[in-house]
Simulated scan of single mutants.
Amino acid sequence: MNAFSLSGRRALVTGANTGIGQAIAVALSQAGADVIAAGRSPCDQTLALMQGGRSVMLDFADPMAARDIFHAEQIDILINNAGIIRRADAVDFSEADWDDVIDVNLKALFFTCQAFARAALPRGYGKIVNIASLLSFQGGIRVPSYTAAKHGVAGLTKLMANEWAPQGLNINAIAPGYIETNNTTALRQDPARSRAIIDRIPAGRWGRPQDIAQSAVFLSAPASDYINGAVLNVDGGWMAR
């Protein structure tokens, strides 16, 4: 199983306080990585679940927040999970809500990847896993900036793979389906809506953060060395329906 081991590798996971980011940080740690859990506040709960590692504070309201971290030490794996969402009808959506979401979910992701690549390309090795969304493929409703950003994440993942794969970097993305996190609490507590969602999912259940985390381990490990520019749907079959 050495192809799935992350022993000797250091990973940075953004948005690691709760939910999917926390699960990814824990899973990478269990696979042997030295994990840096990044959040807008200290990731104390995540650290308590990890095997070692540490926490740093990065607030991607500043899209350049991670510009220096990759020069301070060697980081082999970057998981871009940090993100926010704002909801309103498209006809009423504000410029401030547009800019806030694009800055965190797309602009910060690109410049974090850029800073990582500038450090990793001379070494000829690095793994980037971007967290996309089913709204990288669908339109959704009442989330125009989030949909635009997640479409952008899918496109940038492919562009960066085209440029950096020849130099030893793997850049891929995961598109989570409906996952049991804080962001989906209201949906899961609405019996009719939750039932309608489950009825469309061939797997017949909501996803768990660990489902995304294990996919992130795979895309961070040597087992995925010949995977480049992929957007992996981890959705219980939602997009196949």
Rank of each mutant, 00 (worst) to 15 (best):
L58T: 05
N17Y: 03
F93H: 03
A82G: 02
A221C: 15
L219A: 08
P166W: 08
V234P: 10
I171N: 04
G204Q: 04
Q45Y: 05
V35R: 03
N80P: 11
D190G: 04
R67I: 01
A37N: 14
A31M: 10
C113A: 08
G52C: 11
G124E: 12
L121D: 05
S7F: 10
P63D: 05
Q189H: 12
N172K: 03
D97T: 00
D225L: 10
G52D: 11
Q214E: 11
G207E: 07
A173E: 03
D97V: 01
V91A: 14
Q210A: 15
L49D: 00
Y178E: 07
T14Q: 10
W164K: 03
L169R: 00
G152F: 12
D92H: 07
L169C: 07
S94D: 02
A82I: 06
D97P: 02
A192S: 12
K127S: 07
R193H: 06
P42R: 12
N233Q: 14
W98V: 08
K127C: 02
A27Q: 09
R67V: 05
D92N: 11
N183H: 07
M160W: 15
G140M: 10
Q189N: 14
R87V: 09
G139A: 14
A38N: 06
L78W: 01
V234N: 10
I179D: 13
A115V: 01
R9E: 14
M64T: 02
L135A: 04
A240P: 09
T14S: 14
N182L: 09
P191Q: 03
M1F: 09
D99T: 06
I128Q: 01
K150E: 08
A33G: 11
A38D: 08
I128T: 02
S133Q: 03
I102K: 00
D103T: 15
D44Y: 00
A230C: 12
R40G: 10
A186C: 01
R9K: 15
L232R: 11
R205F: 07
V217A: 08
F110T: 00
L156Y: 11
A3N: 15
I102Q: 02
H71D: 04
